[in-house]
Nucleic acid binder design. Structure first.
Lengths: 205, 205
DNA sequence: TTACTTCTCGACAGTACGTCGATAAACTCG
DNA sequence: CGAGTTTATCGACGTACTGTCGAGAAGTAA
C-alpha cells in the first residue's frame, strides 16, 4: 500500500504517466475528498486504462502519500527563526505562519483530506506523526529554554503544550476557508498560550 | 440519507431491532472507524438480514447520525456555569471540561470518526456545525462581556477567538489517548487564550 | 533479427452497496 | 374469529468500485 510495485528506473515515458497521475490527483483533490475519487478518474486523467494505473501505484492512497511526501519540505519551511529563537518574538512566529497558511490555502482540501483519512491508514498516520513530532520537538525545546531563562511562565509540560499548539494550528488552518486571514490571530493566541500576555499586544484587528 | 424510510410509530418490536442496530454500531465504533464497518455486521449484530437493515436506516451514516443525536445533550452539559459566568474562573471551566473529557474517553473513537467523516456528509457536517455554533456563540458573548468589564485584554474578534478555542478543545480531545489527563492543561491554556495570564496560575503539573 | 524490459489492457473475481417485489408476522377493528 | 392494514423480513438483482492475472504490444539495444 505504500511502495510502487512494478517500475525500476529510467527517465522514460512511463515517468510522464506517473506525473500525469499525480497531477490529476492533485487537481481532483482540490475539488473533492479522496473517498469520492475513483481509480478510473485518476487513470482517465493520465489517459491510461484503469488496470494500467496499478502499474504505477497500488492504490489511490499511495498516490496521496506520494503527493504528500512531495510537499513535506514546504510544510516546515521558514519555521527556523521562530523555533530556534527565544522569547515572544511576534515577527518570527508570523513569518513562520504565513507560508504555512499559504500552503493551506492552496492545498487545504488535500491536506484536510489526508488528515481525516490518517486514522485508518498507517502510511498517512505516519506522515502526520512525523510532521507533528518535528514541530512539537523543537517547540517544546524552545519552551523549555524560555522558561529556564525566565522569559515564559510555568505551565503545562512543554511537550504537552507544544502538542496543544500544534493541534490548534492544524485544526484552525484546516477548518478555515481563508487561512491567511487567521495568521495574526494565531500569532496572538500561540504567544498567549506560551507566555501569557508577557509583552504581547494584539497586532491587528 | 438522514430520515428513516419505512417506520411510522408504535412502541413495538421493531423498536428493539432499531435499538439493537444502534447498540451494535456503538460497540463496533468503539473498535474501528465507520468506513471499516459493513452493513452486514450491523445487521448481523441485530440478528436481521442485510436487506432488513434498510427498513430501519438508509445507510450506516444514518446510524451514526442517530447515535450522535442521542448524545447531543450530554456534550454541552455542565458548561453553563463557565459559559454564563465572568472572569478567569478556573473551577467553572474545569467543571465544564471534566464531563466532556469523560465523554471523549468513552466514545472517542465514535466522535473522532464522526468528525473525520463530517466533511463529505452534510448531516454530519450540520451536526458538528450546530455543536460548534452553540459553544462559540456563548463563549464569544462571554469574552465580549469580560472585555467590556475590563476582566480580559483585547485580542482577536471574540467569535474568532471562541472558534479557535473550540478547535483546540476538539482537536486535543480527539487526539489524546487519555482525554481526562488533559483537562488541567486545557484549563490553563484556554484561560491564557482569553485572559493572557490575568490571575492565572497553573493548577497541577 | 532476437532478446529484453517497460508498459498496456481486457477479463475475471471479490466485496459492498442499495432497490425491488414477494411474503410473513403483528396488530386493528368489525 | 377473520378480513384488512400496517409493520417487518428476506432473497434476488443490478451497480459501482476494487485489485489481480496473464496475454501481449511498444520501446530499446545487441
Amino acid at each position: 500500500m505504500s511502495t510502487p510495485p512494478g517500475r525500476r528506473r529510467g527517465p522514460s515515458k512511463g515517468d510522464r504517466r506517473e506525473r500525469a497521475i499525480l497531477e490529476t490527483a492533485r487537481a481532483l483533490l482540490a475539488r473533492k475528498p479522496l473517498a469520492d475519487i475513483t481509480i478510473d478518474e485518476l487513470a482517465a486523467g493520465a489517459e491510461i486504462s484503469r488496470s494500467s494505473f496499478y502499474f504505477y501505484f497500488d492504490s489511490k492512497l499511495s498516490v496521496l502519500v506520494a503527493l504528500l511526501h512531495g510537499m513535506a519540505g514546504e510544510l516546515g519551511r521558514d519555521a527556523g527563526p521562530w523555533l530556534d529563537g527565544a522569547g515572544p518574538d511576534t515577527t518570527a512566529l508570523r513569518e513562520a505562519l504565513i507560508p504555512l497558511a499559504r500552503l493551506w490555502r492552496e492545498h487545504g482540501r488535500m491536506l484536510a483530506g489526508a488528515l481525516a483519512a490518517a486514522p485508518g491508514c498507517p502510511p498517512l498516520a505516519q506522515w502526520r506523526e512525523r510532521l507533528r513530532a518535528a514541530h512539537v520537538d523543537r517547540l517544546a525545546a524552545r519552551i523549555t529554554r524560555d522558561r529556564a531563562a525566565g522569559l515564559a511562565p510555568d505551565g503545562p509540560e512543554p511537550r504537552v503544550l507544544a502538542g496543544l499548539i500544534d493541534d490548534l494550528r492544524t485544526a484552525a488552518l484546516a477548518g478555515s476557508a481563508d487561512p491567511e486571514a487567521l495568521v495574526d490571530d494565531l500569532v496572538t493566541v500561540e504567544l498567549r498560550m506560551i507566555y501569557g500576555d508577557f509583552g504581547d499586544h494584539h497586532p491587528a484587528g
